[in-house]
């Protein structure tokens, strides 16, 4: 890996890296066991933080929404607003941000640690391609766990919204449930899942890239983890915005 660090050089290096990872995906050998292990670890690490971070969002939307919808006497519609917001926007975006924070930073930190301790070199000397053995499993794992977590957080968001609206704010349960699916369709769920898959894959890639480029000992490991999270959060928000705009334009 190169030592120079201009933004242009980094972009080119990233494209190179992306191409190399794709090549590894198409051609063998694959380390499926290592991929499963990585998925298992990341899933365990992500489950609780992602759930804890996304669940309150449903409650907060319900909490702020109840007032406004009451003002206009349409509190029955609260649940359709909640469902739209959660299915399409908040669950996928926040779940991805949390996957970036948890899985992204831990992948980058792990690979970065291996790099500064010479373990990546050790792999290469033992003729095990580090790209195949450490980067690709992380990439595949993120690609898969992000949408899985999104299913969970969508459900959690709806439940917490329901809890706040119906149990605490005394919105009528029947109206809430009746209107819940009046505005959302299966397409919304698919859109959410597709976004998460896209973001998840990007998180895995960026984390692997930052990890492999780690230089400068222990401090470098911290920098790799940090820059991964910052870069991925920017990426998620920016891409998410353009996707929303595109979907609005397409009328989906």
């Amino acid at each position: 890996m190169s030592q120079r660090r201009g933004p242009l050089e980094a972009t080119l290096a990233f494209l190179d890296f992306f191409a190399a990872v794709l090549r590894c995906l198409v051609t063998g050998p694959h380390f499926w066991l290592e991929t499963l292990r990585t998925m298992d670890i990341l899933m365990r690490r992500c489950l609780i933080p992602v759930g804890l971070a996304v669940a309150p969002v449903g409650a907060v939307i319900a909490l702020q929404g109840v007032g406004v919808f009451r003002m206009f006497g349409v509190e029955g519609l609260l649940s359709s607003m909640l469902a739209t917001a959660i299915f399409r926007q908040y669950s996928p975006a926040l779940a991805s941000v949390m996957v970036a924070a948890q899985a992204g930073s831990s992948i980058a930190a792990r690979i970065g640690t291996m790099k500064v301790r010479g373990q990546i070199d050790a792999l290469a000397v033992m003729s095990v391609d580090p790209l195949r053995y450490v980067v690709v499993p992380g990439f595949i794992a993120c690609l898969i766990i992000a949408p899985l977590l999104n299913v969970l957080t969508t459900a959690l968001g709806l439940v917490s919204g329901w809890f706040f609206a119906v149990v605490l704010a005394r919105v009528d349960h029947g109206a809430f449930v009746d209107n819940l699916y009046s505005q959302v369709t299966v397409t919304d769920l698919w859109i959410g899942l597709a976004k998460c898959t896209l973001f998840g894959g990007a998180i895995g890639l960026i984390a692997g890239f930052a990890g492999l480029r780690t230089v400068g000992g222990a401090a470098g490991v911290g920098r790799a983890a940090n820059s991964t999270v910052v870069t991925t959060i920017i990426m998620i928000l920016v891409i998410d915005y353009f996707i929303s705009l595109l979907l609005l334009w397409l009328g989906v």
């Binding site: 640690t113 291996m114 301790r117 010479g118 373990q119 070199d121 050790a122 000397v125």
Partner: peptide, 10 residues
């Protein structure tokens, strides 16, 4: 190759 600090996988 024997690395300076071993480079064992943690």
């Amino acid at each position: 190759m024997l690395f300076q600090d071993g480079a064992l996988f943690d």
